[in-house]
Amino acid sequence: MSLILASINYWVTIILMIGGLYIVVAHGNMVKKLVGLGIFQTSVYLLFLSPGKILGGTAPIISEKFEVYSNPLPHVLILTAIVVGVATIALGMALVVRINEAYGTIEDDEVHEMEQE
């Protein structure tokens, strides 16, 4: 149990990752797939951010009062990654809207059937 608690952040990451992927695989609704994709990406944010946090550390502004700082790099990176993620989801949603206009449905099996014709 303590093993799990000690690395709880990784476990959460893994669960989110698998959960996200599972949604992408299992759900036929295109919006839900995107949601799954979002969850999957979020897991990565956690993967990067959690090792950067140092217990008792503070924001990395150099000051005489503090000696332990958190690593700022992951925050910068993940900020970028979030932007990328938002853009991806936005583009995905736009595509889903267009698919809905073109096919009248966003269930992938129905779309697939229409394409087979």
């Binding site: 995107l34 994709l37 999957f40 990406q41 990565v44 995905g92 595509l95 073109a102 096919y103």
Partner: peptide
């Protein structure tokens, strides 16, 4: 079908990129 192709590509591409980030 370009739309669905793009959508598929988006899902797969994002997963690929995310794997690379991991």
């Amino acid at each position: 079908r370009g739309l669905t192709a793009a959508y598929q590509y988006l899902i797969m591409g994002t997963i690929g990129a995310t794997f690379i980030v991991i």
